[in-house]
């Protein structure tokens, strides 16, 4: 029942439960143990493929190979499908690995976006300065790694435009984001420069509410939801892959759509 309710009218409480399910607790940490289907595999292959670290390492290697495949499949010009306003999912789900009450509360008056790494101008940006940037809008589908999806409306500045203004070296490989609650995320430069990748300040034409990442979210309709950081407080243009909160736990790094 849970999922069927999510599509027409989302129950945020249930989604929180979904999100907490994403958290690997001690019993979930091993990828390989405790599955009967592996018994059948062992039977078929005549060898114990579940003996720990090696198999896990192999799976991670294949996941890295898949990063490369996805980067090759990624088109810098192909746009994610857009939708009419009537298609917007109401209410749009809150989703995080914590409860909505525990979402970070960022003070907009003192907020400053820190800019670091391979950029010419590292001056931090106040919210007023960010709000003064040119605004674009998109109604696109947010797709969660869990499988559910929801259509939302986001307004802000193309990240490519902002990168140009700060004199970012766009030959660099990555952009790393840091969020108020400590969440982190690294994305590839081609995705950062994609026309629909947006520094988002509004949801449905209203200032981004706390649940959706106030004061700033990075919206990328070409990537899974968890690659779209909320409550962003700093970004760094870099050639070093600093990983991210979920990626370090085993989710695929590229996670492109």
């Amino acid at each position: 029942m849970r999922q069927r309710r999510i599509i027409p009218g989302v129950d945020p409480k249930l989604l929180i439960k979904d999100a907490t399910k994403l958290m690997p607790d001690a019993s979930r940490r091993g990828f390989l143990r405790g599955a009967a289907s592996l018994g059948a595999l062992t039977f078929l292959t005549g060898c114990d493929i579940i003996d720990g670290e090696t198999a896990e390492g192999t799976l991670r290697k294949i996941s890295e190979f898949n990063d490369g495949v996805q980067a090759a499949l990624f088109s810098p010009t192909k746009l994610a499908p857009t939708y009419p306003e009537s298609a917007i999912t109401k209410p749009f789900p809150f989703n995080a690995y914590y409860d909505e009450d525990e979402a970070p509360e960022v003070d907009g008056k003192t907020y400053k976006l820190e800019v670091a790494g391979l950029v010419e101008n590292k001056k931090p940006w106040t919210l007023d300065e960010l709000y003064a940037l040119p605004e674009v809008s998109q109604i696109t589908r947010h797709i969660c790694v869990e499988g559910w999806s929801a259509i939302g409306s986001w307004q802000g500045t193309p990240l490519a435009e902002f990168l140009k203004r700060i004199g970012a070296d766009t030959r660099a490989k990555y952009i790393w984001f840091k969020c108020a609650e400590g969440y982190t995320n690294t994305i590839d430069m081609p995705t950062a420069l994609h026309p629909q990748t947006q520094m988002t300040f509004k949801f449905a034409n209203r200032i981004l509410p706390r649940a959706y990442g106030y004061p700033m979210k990075i919206r990328m309709p070409t990537k899974l939801g968890f690659k779209n950081p909320k409550y962003v407080v700093a970004m760094e243009v870099t050639n070093i892959d600093k990983g991210g909160y979920w990626e370090d736990k085993g989710y695929n790094w590229f996670s492109g759509l």
């Binding site: 994403l22 599955a35 991670r60 996941s63 869990e146």
Partner: peptide, 29 residues
């Protein structure tokens, strides 16, 4: 199981990967 389409989930004993990320690694390998 991470986001069921119907009113049931598969027992964890017969599902592979132990949690969503593990299952995704297996699936995409």
């Amino acid at each position: 199981n991470a986001s069921p389409l119907f009113d049931f989930v598969f027992p964890r004993q017969i599902a592979l990967g132990n949690w969503l990320a593990g299952a995704l690694l297996w699936h995409f390998a």
